[in-house]
Simulated scan of single mutants.
Amino acid sequence: MKVKSIAIASVLAAVFAGNAFAAQPESGEGPLFLNEAQAVSTLTREAVTQEAIANPPAVNGYDDATAGVATPSQVTRSAVRDATRDAIAHGFRVQSGEMA
């Protein structure tokens, strides 16, 4: 085959391959089930609202009532800096960077 024929053949192969993949569902949409049962909710809007008020969703990935509220630290910032300086002076190496 000539170079021109090879180029045209590769372009046509790419076009046909693209058409074959176009029939599939998009990412996150598959598998495509067309015969799923349709169910209608029997709950009223008022019942759903009352349930949401009674059991609110967790905020920021946790619920304060179940996780417990942490008590604030009594150590000051300057005390932490002084303790870190003393530890470094006595040979403690602070772990920092990518290999920490």
Rank of each mutant, 00 (worst) to 15 (best):
M1L: 10
M1P: 09
V3L: 14
V3A: 14
S5V: 08
I8N: 13
L12D: 00
L12Q: 05
A13N: 02
A13P: 01
A13Q: 03
V15Y: 00
V15T: 01
A17R: 03
A17N: 02
G18K: 02
N19P: 00
F21L: 13
P25Y: 00
P25R: 00
P25I: 00
E26K: 09
S27W: 06
G28M: 01
E29N: 05
P31I: 00
L32A: 10
F33L: 14
L34R: 15
L34S: 14
L34I: 05
A37C: 04
Q38Y: 13
A39K: 01
V40E: 13
S41C: 13
T42D: 12
T42K: 14
T42E: 13
T42G: 11
T44R: 05
R45V: 08
E46N: 07
E46T: 08
A47V: 01
V48F: 12
V48Y: 10
T49K: 15
T49F: 15
Q50W: 06
E51N: 10
E51I: 13
I53H: 03
N55C: 10
A58S: 09
A58M: 04
N60Q: 11
G61H: 06
G61Y: 09
D63L: 08
D63C: 09
D63H: 10
G68K: 09
A70M: 06
A70T: 08
S73Y: 04
Q74P: 05
Q74E: 14
R77C: 09
R77Q: 14
R77P: 06
A79I: 05
A83K: 11
A83D: 11
A83P: 05
R85I: 03
R85V: 01
D86H: 02
D86M: 04
I88L: 06
A89H: 09
H90I: 04
G91D: 07
G91P: 01
G91Y: 00
R93W: 04
V94T: 12
S96W: 02
G97R: 02
G97I: 02
G97C: 06
